[in-house]
Amino acid sequence: MKVMHIMLPVCAMNCYLAINEETKESIIIDPGSAPERIKAGVEQSGTTPVAILLTHGHFDHAGAAAEIAAAYGIKVYAYEKERETLANPEINLSVMMGEAASYKTDIFLKDDEEVEMAGLTFKCLATPGHTPGGCCFYFEKEGILFTGDTLFRGSVGRTDFPGGSMSQLVNSIKEKLMVLPNETICYPGHESATTIEFERNNNMFL
């Protein structure tokens, strides 16, 4: 699997394409803004998108999902406990952008649910704390984890937004992420990539 990074302008957000180079298909993770930039990235990759995964429902991660889904005729997936965040403009923070938006999701996943698409298999790992239904997507075979705003290099996500909890977030990371292999590469929603080993040894929040 190849990971393609697309930097988005709103909140310097990382959108990713999880690419199966054999099938020439891709999964779009967190298309938060700048849909034309995302489409350009897809075109550059030479792949056909098959789905959108949302690590959580904040506007900077979900804002362009509906337009991208419509453009490619694909479905949007999120963790089942993120329904209210996606639907409520006060909780998804879209009111901060002056648009009070609700974000549509087609399929809600359960904790530890395993999904196969684009010839790739991933697991939805519930990691509440940044939001009540935040999650990470773990591609075990490839040793890749998309962490959204749960885990950053040397840090963790903010918990001062509606529904946030620092104790819950730290517990989520310890119980769901720190048990993964050291060599697992973590691709966060902001800033640079890291590994489970680096965070286990260096993250002051853990």
Rank of each mutant, 00 (worst) to 15 (best):
F139V: 03
I19N: 00
E140N: 05
L17Y: 07
V50N: 04
A12E: 12
L180S: 12
G148R: 09
A126V: 08
M166E: 11
C186A: 14
L53D: 00
I91M: 15
R158L: 13
V170C: 10
E84P: 04
M117T: 12
V50L: 04
E67L: 02
A66C: 08
L53T: 02
F108K: 01
G164P: 12
N14R: 13
N171D: 11
I38T: 06
A69P: 06
P35G: 09
G154K: 12
G143F: 10
S172C: 12
I74A: 08
Y138H: 11
P35S: 10
K110W: 10
I68P: 06
A40I: 09
S155Q: 12
Y16Q: 05
L145D: 11
V3R: 01
G98Y: 02
I52Y: 05
G143E: 07
F198H: 12
N171Y: 14
S192P: 05
M7D: 10
F108M: 05
T105N: 04
T23N: 06
T23M: 08
V42L: 03
K75W: 01
D106E: 03
S26H: 03
S167E: 15
A87H: 05
A34C: 14
R158I: 06
G189I: 00
T105P: 00
I28P: 01
A69E: 06
G133H: 11
L8R: 13
S26A: 15
Y77F: 15
K81G: 09
G63Q: 07
F108L: 05
G189F: 13
V115Q: 00
K39S: 11
I107R: 06
F122R: 00
I107S: 00
D160S: 14
S26I: 04
S33K: 02
L93A: 09
C135S: 15
K81P: 02
G189Q: 11
N171V: 09
V156H: 15
I173S: 08
F122E: 01
R83V: 14
P132G: 04
L125Y: 05
I196R: 13
A193L: 12
E67A: 13
K141R: 15
F146V: 07
Y72C: 08
Y138S: 10
G134E: 11
P188W: 10
P31V: 09
L145S: 10
C11I: 13
I28N: 02
N201Q: 15
M4R: 11
G154H: 07
V76D: 02
L93P: 08
P181N: 12
H56K: 02
K176Y: 10
L125E: 00
Y79D: 01
M13E: 14
N92G: 09
I74P: 03
T47A: 01
V76Y: 03
N201D: 12
K2I: 05
A62P: 09
F122W: 13
L8S: 06
I27M: 07
E82K: 04
Y72T: 03
G73R: 10
Y79P: 01
I6P: 00
Y16H: 10
T55F: 03
M166V: 08
G148A: 10
G143R: 05
